Amino acid sequence: MSIGNSPNSPEEDRSSAGPDRPSVGRTLQQARIGAGLTVEEVSTATRVRIPIVHAIEQDDFTRCGGDVYARGHIRTLARAVSLDPRPLIERYDADRGGRPAPTVAAPLFEAERIRSEPRRPNWTAAMVAAIVVVVGFVGFTFLSGGGRHEAGPVATDTAKADKPGPASSTIHPRAPQPKPAPSESAIAGLPKDKVTIKVTAKDGQSWLSAKDANGKLLQDGLLRQGESKTFTDKKRIDLVVGNAGAVQLYVNGKEVKKVGNEGSVERLSYTPGDPQAG
């Protein structure tokens, strides 16, 4: 029995992409290797389980639980290795025939919007409005009559009010005071027998892992742009910093000028006597 032209398997379709257009999984794997990250480190940073990370890098998305979860995993892994997730998601959808168009919900409610129920007259609001009008008219008549009899004193008081007051009563807006820059006294206030580290994702997000001298995990995950973390230990703080060029680092109150390059992974360790030169 001869076998005719059978459709290619998903693995054969992915292998036919060619070197000019690597698959989604291959692109994520190359970016991870280029960033110097292991699968375990990416799994820890993104909270995507290690078997799923391995499967996605092999273009096996069956373990994701559906297209929605697969797109979410692709987006998370791409950001962890400093990739733009949009082209990868578009390629994922294109390989599967495209994403289904969203359903337009507006026409479904058009008839309900047109056939609104007639409102019943609000007699309570009408009575309140009538009372307000009557009270306002009586008050206006009373004030108008009183104003004609007391026109003289009112004019006198107005003239007094128009006289300029003493110069000292003039209120000048206070100019905003500039924030003081960090001084040497602030650095001197840090404890000498401990190591204090402050990490800030200044120019972009970074992946950060921090442990104390006993190996206790103090931080493990993404540090979004603008976020800061501070760590203190009596002996030592060990750091693993991803995308080190985007990080601002202070050790014992002194800034470390060069942590690393953009996209690089740096492993650092500091003690209470560090750094020798900030």
Rank of each mutant, 00 (worst) to 15 (best):
208 L>K: 06
97 G>V: 07
60 D>H: 05
107 P>R: 02
185 S>I: 06
42 V>L: 13
63 R>Q: 14
270 Y>N: 03
207 W>F: 11
230 T>S: 05
15 S>I: 13
117 E>A: 05
178 P>F: 00
100 P>N: 06
190 L>V: 00
90 E>K: 11
46 T>M: 05
23 S>M: 06
2 S>A: 12
256 V>P: 05
260 G>R: 03
48 V>I: 15
247 V>R: 04
269 S>W: 09
79 R>I: 12
126 A>D: 09
221 G>Q: 02
228 S>K: 07
81 V>Q: 05
11 E>C: 02
265 V>T: 15
88 L>A: 07
123 W>N: 10
76 T>R: 14
101 A>F: 07
229 K>F: 05
180 P>R: 08
142 F>K: 11
40 E>T: 09
150 E>A: 10
49 R>N: 14
174 R>K: 13
193 D>L: 03
121 P>I: 01
114 I>G: 06
267 R>I: 08
160 K>P: 05
92 Y>V: 01
6 S>D: 12
65 G>Y: 00
160 K>C: 08
175 A>G: 03
14 R>F: 14
89 I>Y: 07
276 Q>G: 08
116 S>K: 10
119 R>K: 09
14 R>P: 11
11 E>F: 12
122 N>V: 04
237 I>H: 08
138 V>D: 10
61 F>D: 02
241 V>H: 04
49 R>V: 10
205 Q>A: 11
113 R>I: 01
269 S>R: 10
74 I>A: 01
113 R>D: 00
57 E>A: 04
197 I>V: 15
197 I>L: 13
21 R>W: 09
274 D>Q: 03
91 R>I: 00
